[in-house]
Amino acid sequence: MAELTPYICVADSRAAIEWYRAHLGAEVVVDPIVMDDGHVGHCELAVDGARWMMSDAFESAGVAPPDPGRGNAVTLHLTVSDVDALCRRVHDAGATVDRAPEDNPPIGRLAVFHDPFGHRWFLNQPLPEHEPVPESLPEPD
């Protein structure tokens, strides 16, 4: 089985853990591993089973948080049950909403935001499936 798990870097993992817990509803699934210098070397979080890994910056390994002066090379895509509620929650918590919630069939209801740590998130909520409308049949002769 293949799996792809994002591994993000932030300037302050402790603050990011608390923000993601409070505002995305994330849970810590692997406790932070704290390095000798006090930086977080690794931790793992999840929202409804959607996992990501995270660490503080490590210059020696070429790992750095997003540069606010550049665009994001990666967007984190998170499927949620209520895009509107989550978008309001992250906005109220200091996130920048780049794209307000809107329906975009067939993708679903979506929104895009930047968290306070510079990461770009794409929120997606599947739209309810609609029964196809049957084409009208010609009248019998």
Results as ranks from 00 to 15, higher is better:
L123I: 11
D141G: 14
R88S: 13
M54N: 01
P6M: 01
P6S: 03
P134T: 13
V40K: 00
A15N: 01
E129N: 13
P128A: 11
A16K: 08
A15Y: 00
P6L: 00
A85K: 02
G94E: 07
W52Q: 01
A111N: 08
G71Y: 04
N104F: 14
V97P: 05
L4K: 09
G41V: 00
D37C: 12
V29F: 10
Q125R: 14
R89H: 01
I8M: 00
V10M: 10
E102W: 09
G71E: 13
F113E: 01
L45N: 05
F113H: 03
V47A: 03
L137P: 01
A95C: 03
A111F: 08
R51Y: 10
R70V: 04
V47L: 02
H91E: 15
A85M: 05
A57Q: 11
G49H: 01
Q125M: 14
S13C: 15
A16T: 06
E131C: 11
P126N: 08
V34Q: 02
I107N: 12
A16Q: 03
D31G: 10
P128W: 05
W121D: 06
F122A: 10
W19N: 01
L24C: 00
I17T: 05
F58C: 06
E129V: 15
H130D: 13
E44F: 07
D103S: 15
P116I: 05
V29L: 07
G38K: 03
D31N: 13
L123Y: 07
D98I: 05
Y7S: 14
G25W: 10
D67Q: 01
P65R: 11
P128H: 07
A73V: 14
A73L: 14
D36Q: 15
A100G: 04
S13Q: 07
R70E: 08
W52Y: 04
R120V: 13
G49Q: 02
H23C: 00
P116H: 04
R21S: 00
G38F: 05
V40C: 13
E44V: 06
R70T: 12
